[in-house]
Design a protein around this nucleic acid. Sequence first.
DNA 1: GTGAAAGCGCTAACAA
DNA 2: TTGTTAGCGCTTTCAC
Lengths: 342, 342
Amino acid sequence: MSLKITIADIANELNTTPATVSRALNDHPSISVKRKEIVREAAERLQYKRNKIASSLRLGQSGIIGVIIPSAEINFFGSVVHGIESIANKSGYNILIYQSNESSEHEAKGIETFLSARVDGIMVSIAKDTKEYSHFIAAKKSNIPIVFFDRANINLGINSVLIDDYKGAFIATQHLIEQGYKRIAHISGPSHLKIFNDRLQGYIGALKENNINVDGELIFQGDVSVEAGRSGIQHFLKLSNPPDALFAVEDFTALGAIKELKDNNISIPNDFGVIGFANEKFGEHITPTLSTIDQQTVQMGKESFLLLMQLMNDGQTNVAIDKNVILDPIPIFRNSSMRNLK
Amino acid sequence: MSLKITIADIANELNTTPATVSRALNDHPSISVKRKEIVREAAERLQYKRNKIASSLRLGQSGIIGVIIPSAEINFFGSVVHGIESIANKSGYNILIYQSNESSEHEAKGIETFLSARVDGIMVSIAKDTKEYSHFIAAKKSNIPIVFFDRANINLGINSVLIDDYKGAFIATQHLIEQGYKRIAHISGPSHLKIFNDRLQGYIGALKENNINVDGELIFQGDVSVEAGRSGIQHFLKLSNPPDALFAVEDFTALGAIKELKDNNISIPNDFGVIGFANEKFGEHITPTLSTIDQQTVQMGKESFLLLMQLMNDGQTNVAIDKNVILDPIPIFRNSSMRNLK
DNA sequence: GTGAAAGCGCTAACAA
DNA sequence: TTGTTAGCGCTTTCAC
């Protein structure tokens, strides 16, 4: 049972004081080079590990960033966390993870936990069922830097990193138009969520820009799911004047649509073009390969952390900063919509 | 700039002492119910948040579990983390994430960081390129509970939670035999990693059990990648007596194999059966749907945490515990190997 | 260039 | 049932 070595132990060993040892280990300029070496050698020899808790208490900062995600099981968020971690580590920060499981309550508890843990900053992607934002307001009041990523509420005065959903949807729809499809449908997501509404608007915007009539019949209220994709297509095929292309709100929705189209022996992309959104991994492995819009997940993680860093630094100088990062969506055109290639 | 409220502030407010406030907030039995209420009310009113850092320093435990994974971007690990977090949270623990990026150095730095952060326990899935284990030995020496999951080194006397790769491979191979395939091939993974070697042995074991000759020609040294799957099939098809089925070391390998088989107009599963390992999400969406072996990722996370909890408790009572959890792989038979269904 | 001493905020003996 | 006191391990001001 090796007891933990402290700087006092080292000081003892070297007949000096904790203060000197502390300074030496922190590379303080007023300590002689020789002494620094001696101290470091002793620390090494005694297997000293700095007690970061004590250090944090004294310094008033923990070196920890709290990240709230809906679920680590969702690829997208794992990828963002990867982005965050990859650069946070280099800056000497560590990442505390909290899952909201799409629940507002858990989310609030996560904030609470982080505040208590005295994290130096918080990053959040808002839970789907969060409609009440007092926990964020509370966090803001206690002056802790906080950044939203991917899912934000822009009315709280909290900075955010998002991708441009409107633009992504616009590009996707424009692409279908350019491929010569004439009646382009959309399966949308839950409309109370901004990201999904933005995609709907992007779809509409592209149609208008091309002087194409927006037909309400061609907009199916769906969800992020294979089933919604199937239902949407079932609905569309019943129309007297059915569509010949689909911009789906998400890749899984697009996948369901493709399955249903295949079941109806409709040829993709010849008779029907499909494009999704998210760039899920399966997209390049299904037949036909799925056209989609990439959301730059890793980049999003990095940008979020950088923004948080700015907030943390500026917080010290009391300079308010208002910066929202909008990432460009990246179109990935594959076989499901590339009619010209066939 | 609202300064942080401390228990001293509350004590002041109520004309009592920090000790009493602390006890009240911690629901200490010797404090009267009335006073507890008063204290809690004041804490609420003043927006007090317990400083967990100070508490940790005093108590000598942080309530934090350190988790080292190769990458948060890999689905598998996100899923395990989900499992860990879902139950750790309920037990009042938080999760500090560290990515090794498959590098031994980063891994060692992660251990270092965790030791310094005084985490209460560590969970690790070993990086691919780790061949030197001194950082784990160091961790063990400093008496911190530590658990390996998925990727372990069983020679370090560190407890682990694994799935039974041998059994999974055995089941997969047995299944192909039962489907009437006669010459069953295997594309293996890097042989220095135990999990891949176990799968190879499981494959061999099943053949022997069924009195089938193990043909070295039918074992292709590959990797976890689409390319390895393609190369493997290319190799096999050149044989004078090619195989009619494949157990691939991983789903992506199986995917590559399927692509190559399709390119060669070989009908799956009629003329060639394929089964993978891992139950990646894309498996149920490709054509044909992919048979595979599920690794119980979420369950693995939960079991790992439970094991760690045991170690943490037993550490206090100085009872050594030696327990390794082996999870059962779950076969998922889909179209790529279900000849009888067609 | 180094030491003495105080204190970050909390909890737990011990005392009353 | 509550208060007094000490101390977790570190950093930093002030003094020398």
